[in-house]
């Protein structure tokens, strides 16, 4: 921890910068709120006295439209009910937060793990290994990923749990971006005195990578992970929207949005609640990610403020 030792003072300054960024703080607050909602989803819907699976056909009229104001908003159903089924929309939205955040965060973790691993080793070792990974990244960028995701969803054996598959598929296509950045940073770090010195003192590559390079990548990794999450959540929603995400009846915002678009003229609230939830979530993560980048990313930190 040689060169990184100068950090404490800088770190405190960075946190102050984040704390001073109103948007980032708002984003962080919303993110924390969402995490709580996702964790407590069953509890929240239990407070309301509903669950996202039970049909309430009595809440619908003859053509399947929710009775009453705003898509059936009432003391029993806080956000109203879903057309055609009468399932409770509040329960669906809060349980949907679970799906979105779980999948988004897990896929991000997978991408970051792969990206850091590949990027760091490629940047550190260079040579043919670097060229091969570079080519692999080109292949992944060259793939029309959406189509492949649909195909993979279709060929996966039924025994494989669908959420795991969705995480795997999104995560596997998410890593090249972060790998490129990490590779670049590693390349730069490799030439820095403290690394050169420690290599010349006989430290093994594993030691250098884990103890000297990785800690210095921390800020970049955190920033990129935060900025990756909204993309992943969006990807999960897009897959659900396409009907290749988590299968029903497990609630998912993307699927609700896809269903709700047809109903927008008869029951607009059916679109508003899941749509707003998805938008707010990606927005909050984006705001937080921006704030973190401005505060932590050494490249923009000096200039932007």
């Amino acid at each position: 921890m040689t060169a990184a030792a100068s950090l404490p003072a800088g770190r405190r300054a960075r946190w102050r910068r984040i704390a001073g960024d109103r948007w980032a703080v708002t984003g962080a607050a919303v993110v924390v709120g969402l995490l709580v909602i996702a964790a407590a989803a069953p509890l929240l819907s239990a407070v309301e006295g509903q669950d996202p699976y039970t049909y309430h056909l009595d809440a619908l009229d003859d053509s399947g439209v929710p009775r009453g104001f705003g898509g059936g908003i009432s003391a029993r159903h806080w956000f109203g009910v879903e057309p055609l089924t009468g399932r409770d929309l509040f329960a669906i939205v809060v349980h949907g937060a679970r799906t979105s955040i779980l999948v988004g965060v897990a896929a991000t973790a997978l991408s970051v793990l792969l990206g850091v691993l590949v990027g760091m080793t490629a940047g550190f070792f260079g040579g043919w290994y670097d060229r091969i990974t570079g080519r692999a990244i080109d292949v992944l960028f060259g793939f029309p990923t959406l189509i492949l995701m649909i195909a993979l969803g279709a060929i996966a054996p039924a025994a494989l749990p669908k959420p795991a598959l969705v995480v795997g598929v999104i995560g596997l296509f998410g890593w090249p971006g972060i790998a490129r950045v990490v590779r670049g940073q590693t390349l730069a770090l490799r030439g820095r005195t403290f690394v050169v010195a420690s290599v010349s003192l006989g430290a093994g590559p594993l030691h250098v990578l884990v103890r000297q390079i990785l800690p210095n990548l921390g800020a970049t990794i955190i920033v990129y992970a935060t900025m990756l999450i909204p993309g992943m959540i969006g990807a999960e929603a897009a897959l659900s929207f396409l009907g290749v995400g988590v299968p029903p009846p497990t609630p998912a915002w993307g699927r609700s949005i896809g269903d709700a678009i047809a109903w927008v003229q008869t029951d607009p609230m059916f679109l508003v609640f899941p749509g707003a939830a998805l938008f707010l979530t990606t927005l909050a993560f984006n705001l937080l990610g921006d704030g973190l980048r401005d505060a932590l990313d050494p490249r923009t930190a000096g200039v932007a403020r």
């Binding site: 959406l146 296509f173 897959l239």
Partner: peptide
């Protein structure tokens, strides 16, 4: 730089 990783299709009719 942020890249939108996925595009989507309107529900397959």
């Amino acid at each position: 730089m942020r890249r939108r990783s996925v595009t989507a299709v309107l529900a397959v009719t």
